[in-house]
Design a protein around this nucleic acid. Structure first.
Lengths: 202, 202, 202, 202
DNA sequence: CGCTAATCGAGACGGTACGTCCCGTCTTCAG
DNA sequence: CTGAAGACGGGACGTACCGTCTCGATTAGCG
């Protein structure tokens, strides 16, 4: 996957890598520091030491910058989290995944970043598609591998597709995060994993 | 529940009901017509034939107007949907609820409105709380009544609280709506209801 | 002539006199301090402590502000220079007028201001007309009164109209000022007055 | 006159004559087509099929290009108008010159060009000097030759220098052109010539 | 029923950020 | 190894809204 997250309109041959990196870094920093509604492109340009035109030349919107930035950050840390462990116990493994998600969401930086990203995807269907392809699908694929193993081991019903099963695990967690309906902790992560596995057992 | 959704700072005695209704109507209409990022308070005031000051006097933000508007619309149609039927079959009853939600989300107007509302709650914790109290909690209470009946009938485990059970039903539906990961239809509603009931069976 | 120099588009009833004065003052100051090509509307707004919109609401262009400012300044000092003296000697009286013009043009502030004004009239025919009506015509009228007296006294040919005679006096002075072809001093003013009178004698 | 109108900073040995001509042509064309305030160096470069750097290497400003272009055009047509005829009648000869000027100023292309040139000289004293040396002085010299002949023939006072006499002829014409105070036609040219000659007669 | 003060519409105000345009410099690459 | 092509940092442009404010005009409720 070379650069699926780029929005390059002009010939990107002459593109300044220095500027690109500075813009993405500035965007991430500001998205964490500033309430997202107050985050403007001028501020990103100023923080990055870059002309506004350079931003508009390469990205169509604030949200597109954010996605690129997150995709970039993901790519850098991808090696670490490559794959889900297979201990033979699906519920335990998925509980681990959900706990990791919960921990991420508890971090103020990630919280701010993901709220910003979610806002953008809600407002712009184009970005929704991009996020789907760039971020969601790879993660689903990762989990799907574990599901396949579980299915082979007879721990997973055959009549539930990977997406449906995946949603059963993650949707409640994100729902609680988004709505703030109740505390989001490891106990909840474990509970959700248990319920999902019960629902998915053959 | 008299009027929990108001943000009335000044003495509301002299408040013009005509203006209030016009503003809420205009806000709902515009939220459907215009991409939410482009929806401004000036536009609402103009559409409502109202001075901007009148809006700022009674609502602290664009999102607050939206919440009031939705609460108002809900209140008006509340009589119809007051309560969930109890056919004795929890899965069937909840499938009906989810189907109704899916139908609502398929309507472009409701889709736009709910996306706007979600954006606001993501950006402003205050509004998140308001939505929780004004919209979410009443709906949860309604479903909780059905859950209690089911629990009495031995169809629901005792070790799952109402909120957790509720999320198991609705979270996957909203997750799919929000992410656009796959088509959102009655079949999916039925599937989610089935999985949730399996997870929640004693 | 109440306010022929205004460019009021909206109903000027609510117009802030404070802002208007601050803008005109700032424009005059900056036109003197800054090379005119570098003078921007943002700088005027900032100096005047005014939003840009307030400028754009009432004036269509930078030049229009300048004209208003000069007309305003003229109006304020109009009482002093009301009329040209009539000593009976046309040449002497007109030499006085030209000397006054020369002195004005020698002042760096007036020099800058008039160059700016001239640039605007060269670029925009609309402003040319405005300047003609607002500034030039009144001055011509003033001189024309003196010409009429001279004509009655038999000091002026009958076959030269006021405008033609006026130009004979002032054009050489402005030409030398604009082109910088040679020093512009009282001696030159006297010489021009003498030549013009010789040309206009019966 | 070797090359006074050039602004050659680098060694002009390698200079591309093709580019130089294309730039000057493009500048003249655009100065006529586009309102001068909207004329930019990027547009000249694009029209000329030339990189911006090539322009900045050889000219310090937009006005400098214009002067070079006009000097070039002048040089090309100089042979035709080399000298003023001497019919023995100064007034008739000068009326011819003024009529020619009037005709030029009536041409929309020359009008636009000269307005642009005048704007530049008003804004930049350096260019004022250049125009003086490159364009004004040669023309003055041409007329001065005719004045010398007239002075020998006893048609011109001895106490008026060439510059002063010259201005008496051309200043009123340019003043009327610049201010748009009244129609500029052959009749006016004749009238100005007559008045000037009356002023300059011994 | 008439007074009076809060609320209303309208919209100008000082601001901030937008997205576009052009400046003058600097870098890359094709000929 | 020149020169077109054009990306770059910078900054002004003119527009759109923000949230505040000042205006009469309207209107509600108390006296």
């Amino acid at each position: 996957m070379p650069d699926a997250s780029e929005f390059s309109s002009p010939a990107p041959r002459r593109r300044s890598e220095r500027s690109r990196a500075a813009i993405l870094t500035a965007a991430l920093e500001l998205a964490v520091e500033v309430p997202y509604g107050r985050l403007g492109i001028e501020a990103i340009a100023a923080r990055a030491g870059v002309g506004k035109a350079t931003i508009y030349r390469w990205w169509p919107s604030k949200g597109a910058i954010l996605i690129d930035a997150l995709a970039d950050a993901n790519a850098r840390s991808a090696e670490a989290t490559y794959g889900i462990p297979d201990s033979g116990d699906l519920e335990a493994d998925m509980a681990g995944v959900l706990r990791a998600i919960v921990d991420e969401l508890a971090d103020p930086g990630w919280d701010a970043l993901l709220r910003a990203l979610t806002v953008e995807t809600l407002l712009d269907p184009t970005l929704r598609t991009t996020v789907l392809e760039t971020i969601f699908t790879p993660q689903l694929a990762m989990v799907a591998r574990r599901f396949t193993a579980a299915r082979t081991a007879g721990q997973l019903r055959d009549d539930v597709d990977d997406l449906g099963a995946f949603e059963l695990f993650v949707a409640p967690v994100f729902h609680r995060w988004q709505g703030g309906t109740a505390p989001l902790d490891h106990a909840y992560a474990d509970a959700v994993a248990a319920r999902a596995c019960r629902a998915l057992a053959p």
